[in-house]
Design a protein around this nucleic acid. Sequence first.
DNA 1: CGGCGTTAATTGTATATACAATAACGGTTC
DNA 2: GAACCGTTATTGTATATACAATTAACGCCG
Lengths: 247, 247
Amino acid sequence: MNWQATLQLDGSGPLYEQIKRAIVRPIRESLWKPGDRIPPEHDLLRHFQASRMTINRALRELAEEGYVTRHRRVGSFVASPPAPTAILDIVDMATIIPSRGQHYRYERISRDIVKPGHELATRLGIGPDEEVCRVVGRHFADGEIVELEERWINLTAVPEAATLPFDDVSPNHWLVSHVPWTEAEHTISAISADAGLASALGCPAGAACLLLERRTFLDDQVVTFARLTHPGSRHRLTERFKPGSSR
Amino acid sequence: MNWQATLQLDGSGPLYEQIKRAIVRPIRESLWKPGDRIPPEHDLLRHFQASRMTINRALRELAEEGYVTRHRRVGSFVASPPAPTAILDIVDMATIIPSRGQHYRYERISRDIVKPGHELATRLGIGPDEEVCRVVGRHFADGEIVELEERWINLTAVPEAATLPFDDVSPNHWLVSHVPWTEAEHTISAISADAGLASALGCPAGAACLLLERRTFLDDQVVTFARLTHPGSRHRLTERFKPGSSR
DNA sequence: CGGCGTTAATTGTATATACAATAACGGTTC
DNA sequence: GAACCGTTATTGTATATACAATTAACGCCG
C-alpha cells in the first residue's frame, strides 16, 4: 500500500527521532492497526534517504517502547495496544478472575448517555454540555461481588462507545483492549461503606473498602474516568515493577 | 583510579551488553559511588578493544536505564540511586509532606534487631535465624499522624542498617536514598482499624485505613519489607504513569 | 505427498569514520 | 580581577559497510 505518503519527517530534531515520530503517528491514529506490517528497514532506508543504522535505531527504540515488535527474517509489526501495566491488568477483572481459576461474570446495572455534572466535567477535562457515556456494573468471582465499576467515557475521544451496550462485556475490558492511551492516573483510597455502597457490594455497612479511581489520557485528553470499588478486605492490589522505567 | 582491573567482560552475549554489565557491576556493588566519573568513551574504547559506536550504545542505554548521566564535553557519571517511582516517592513522607507546604516530623517508636517469625522470614526470603532490623515509627504532617511505618530490614542485604538508630530519619527515607534496588512489589488493601491500630494512628476504631505493603528487591534478594498504614480517608495515593515502560 | 537441505529476506550487532553540539579551560585584553 | 574569545575534550548523531543469526519459503528427492 502507499505508506510512503503517510510517513513524513517533520524536520525538527535528530533524524532518528523524526523517523520515530513519523512511524508512531499512524500507529497512534489507528491508521496502522496491531499486527500490521511495517515496511522493512531496507524500504524505509530508501524512503527516508537515511542509513540503515539510523532506521535501525529508530525501530529498535520503538520496539523498546512497545510500539512495535520485531523478528529476524520476519519483519516489524505494529504491537498490540499498550501492554496493560501490572496494576491495570489487575483491575481488569475479566482477565484476572479466570486466571485464578475462578468463574467470572459481569452484570450491567445501567447505561446512559448523559451530560456530566460540574465535578465530572472537570475531571474529564470537557465542557459541561459535552455528552458522556455512563455505565455502572458489577464483577463477580464465583458468584461473589469483587468490584463495582462506575464508568464515564468521553464520547468526544471515543465516539464508538456511544453505540455499544456494555451489557455483556464491561467497559473496562472493552476499553483496555480497544482504546489507545498515553498516560494513566490512579488514586487509591480507603473508604467506609455507606448504606448504598454496602448494598451494591453485598458487604456490611461500615466495612473498609478499597476505592481505585482511574483517569486514562490520550495526549492530555481524558479518555475515561472510572471509580472501581472493592468490598471489604476481600481484595488486594499487587503490582511489581522495576525502577528506571519512569524516569 | 585503576578502573581497568574492575571492568571485565564476561564473554556471554552481544558485546554492548557485556560492556553494560561490566560497567553496572561496580555501580551496583557501590564500588563506584554516585557522582563518580566514568572513564570517557575514548578510554573505554581502548580498554575493551571495541569501536566507539559500541561503547556509545552501552553508555547510552545505561543512561536511559538511569545508571549513569552524561553531558557533552563534561563526561559520564554514576547517577544517584534509582529514581523513586511515582508511588515510591509518594509514600516517602519526608519528601511529600514538605512539598505540600506542611510541617513534617518523624517519631521513632521502637527499633530492635530480631529474628523474624516464620511468616516474615518467608516474606523476606531468608532463614528464620537470620537477623533483621525492625523499626516502628510514625510520620506527622502539621502534627497530624499520616502514616504508621512498620519496617523490617534484611541485615544480610543491608548490613549498614545494623548500626543506624533510625531515631531521627525514618528507615523509609534512609533506604530510598541509600540502598539500590532492582524491583519493588506493592500490595494495597483496605482494612478496618482495630483498637491497637486506632490508638497508634489516632483514628476511631473501625475506621477504614489504607494499608500499603512493600517489598523491595535487589536481584531476587529481598532488601526490606514495610507495612505502611494510612489513617482513615485522610490519605490518598496518586500515581501517574505512561504505558510501555514496564513491558 | 512428506521430509530435508538450500536460499533468501530481514533484523541484530560490530566497525571505522566523520562532523556537530556543548561547555570547560586557558589565555588575552582591558 | 573581569570580560571576552579561541581551543579542546567529550558526547551526540549520521553514514557506509560487513557479517551473523533467524527462519520463512522454495525446491529437491524419496
